[in-house]
Design a protein around this nucleic acid. Structure first.
Lengths: 206, 206
DNA sequence: ATTTTTGTTGACATTTTTGTCAAACATAAT
DNA sequence: ATTATGTTTGACAAAAATGTCAACAAAAAT
């Protein structure tokens, strides 16, 4: 019976999550991973066949953890504004844990689109909760609560406002001339800012 | 006198700009670059010392082209709203040419922050035009034309709303269930959407 | 025309990264 | 104790990527 088994296997996956998705080391080698996990590199090939396979499962694992809560929120029957508020709150929390997951997945999608030599990831269909939420956005627009546009814009605005400042932190820090602590403070205010922006224009359509 | 000289040298740089910053092939090898440019790989080492050095100059070149116009706009004495409008217009155009420049630079910054083994880029100070524009944002806030907050939020909002949908296009396409042509159409509407959002909340501060 | 400089090429060397394999090890079951 | 099972390791092999070099070609300068 495997005892240590799942331990090291999990350890390796968690290390990938840390190194790639939390720290953003997209060029990390298998040796880097092994070192960070404190295990022999060969174990990566033992538990997962290849680096590619390891990254694929790591992505799946992280995505599940990422979506778990937010899908529940989007599928709930909370009133629109409250739902949006909770979604943003939850999403931002996950984002701060794994800021670079999206960048990595996107990079992956790009490589696969160009070469047959597919590195890791997987293409994802539209999640049902997102679809439902998009419909609610549409209703809110019809009700005149938010400016009437293609609902995808509202969704895009949310994602943009939440994600960009986090994934581009190093660049934004230098452009905006902010220290590490300053930036943290700014990020902390974001939730409020985003909500104000999304709902400030009540009935201001033209 | 060098005649062909600058031609191939330029060709190589332009190819890097295409492969890395336009197409997003962050894992492209020197051979990939040489193939795409139709030149012998050794020439990369002849004109630039190493891959690292090549990427460094390519980044500098692209950034210059990128900032050239938008800096003029930000430094001009146009009224705030018009200035913002032109800035966004110009920035979006450049962004569509080189969507992945920022992602690449950020990835680079991250690696350098962690290892001493610096790959390519360079750390950038706050550009003076940005500083000036931030002050103007502050004035607009004092004048009550836009909600009063830390001015960096306004700047962050602009960047986020412009850049995110472009750099995360593959992911957004699947999440929002949009085809290539649908997405292009949405992107085209963005400029208007962004401006409406930024200026919709006139005097709505709380 | 010849020399000099610059550009270009292919073969080779080095380094880095990934993957394989057999042997050693630990643990639980018989 | 011995076997069986899953785990771990180091040595090795293979592949991929980068860099160097001497030779060759083309153009400019003398």
């Amino acid at each position: 019976m495997p005892v240590k088994d799942c331990q090291t296997k999990k350890l390796i996956i968690e290390t990938v999550m840390k190194v790639f998705f939390a720290e953003g080391q997209i060029y990390a080698t298998t040796q880097d991973i092994a070192d960070a996990a404190g295990v022999n590199r060969t174990l990566i090939n033992y538990y997962f066949r290849s680096k590619k396979a390891l990254l694929a499962t790591a992505i799946k694992t992280t995505r599940k953890e990422f979506i778990k809560n937010s899908d529940l929120i989007l599928s709930s029957d909370l009133p629109f504004r409250e739902k949006t508020e909770r979604f943003i709150d939850d999403f931002l929390n996950n984002l701060l844990k794994y800021p670079y997951l999206e960048s990595f997945v996107t990079a992956d999608l790009i490589q696969r689109r160009l070469k047959k030599n597919a590195p890791a990831g997987f293409i994802e269909k539209q999640p049902a909760p997102i679809k439902q939420y998009l419909e609610e956005i549409s209703e809110e627009m019809d009700a005149g609560n938010i400016p009437k546009n293609n609902p995808v814009h509202f969704m895009m605005n949310i994602f943009s406002l939440m994600i960009y400042p986090i994934i581009m932190k190093p660049l934004q820090m230098s452009i905006l001339n902010l220290s590490e602590t300053d930036y943290e403070k700014v990020l902390y205010e974001r939730k409020r800012i985003i909500l104000e922006l999304l709902f400030s224009s009540e009935g201001t359509k033209q």
